[in-house]
Design a protein around this nucleic acid. Sequence first.
DNA 1: TATCCGTGGTC
DNA 2: TGACCAAGGAT
Length: 409
Amino acid sequence: MPWRVPPGSASLSAPIASGSGVSVTSGAPIPSGSGNAEPPIDALSELASGRVAEGREGLSTTELGYTPHELPTLKGSGHPTFKNPEQRVYEVWVSEIMLQQTTVATVTPYYTKWLIRFPTIKLLAEASLDDVLAHWQGLGYYRRARMLHEGARWVIQNGIPQTAKEWLAVPGVGRYTAGAIASIAQNEPAPLVDGNVERVVSRLTANQASAKSLTDAAWKWAESQLLPGHPAQASPGDWNQALMELGATVCKPVNLLCRACPVQPWCQAFAESRVADYPAPKPRAEKKSLHHSVVILTHDGKFAIRPVPEGRWWAGLYEFPREASLEGLNLMTEATLSQFGQFNHVVTNHEITVDLYHAEAATPTQDLIWVTEEELTQYALPAPSQKALTLWKKSRAQKTLWEQETSPD
DNA sequence: TATCCGTGGTC
DNA sequence: TGACCAAGGAT
Ligand code: SF4
């Protein structure tokens, strides 16, 4: 995510990180998080002299308080990324998919490793799905990885889309991602709306509509800002990022910073002193709880795993056998199960209580995949299986310690 | 169109 | 501590 601000390194009305000090790791430019500080942008005084005070021709990127801080440095680095438009497209594509519903801090290490393992679209297309999923392990929403993989194969077949509209045909790319790639990597004046933009628009226009209605309004507003002749068109990628960054760092869901907000003079919600009323709160889903039983089934130092069937949570990943009950596990194996732990795992609006069992199998049955702990790292395991493994190792270590302490000399 | 799909951080 | 959230897409 070379074009994104490292977390905490810049805020819109505070000193802006220049983006210097970009490090290069195996071909991937990564933000350092500690660029040189430039003088604060006095957004309000700029606005006071602003040509958009009447608000008719649209806001500009500068008026959102945004300075494009990464591109110059990366250009200066002479990195191949910026000599190769296709590579630029790929890196923006990967990061936009990873960042869906996921924070920059979480994504960053995955992004780095991803570009090392799958440096180009072609190499991603040629990789196996298992390999792809293994590099997504822990990021969640695994369908994204599968679609990105499919998308890479689509692009090898059909070529790189050249417009946001064309991007929509690529698996896993919806209208947000299409707009992001087209504007950031291909300089097309394509609008985009994500959760940040939707929230900002809701407040700027004092729109209390909920869900789809607000989304539609936000898209119309975003489109209107990028019409021909509007200042945002000069650098649509910067504009879009500025808008999202405004939402992420100033016009936040809670603890918003209206006093430092560069667009406060045009904010209808602020004018009404009702910023807390926008956007309308979403109805929250009911939380459900359920139980699962998981077995760490071992034989001769190997672990038994099996693929998660399609159509379920974690489809396509591999996990320790998991059933709805202990009875389910007993139907699966003849080995004697002994419980050694329990933990909770939250999946969206479900809280799963997982009972952990261990058993030593008499024989490695063919319906399961038997792997060493080393080989286990080659498989994508869902978080509950990862937790189970961690607890098993901890349990075994304590047992070993206990045996050592209590064994007679 | 409402629901499903994960996870880790924050307050 | 639990509720809420994060740069969505597919069905
Ligand atoms: S003034 Fe406050 S509510 Fe309005 S856009 Fe700025 S941060 Fe958001």
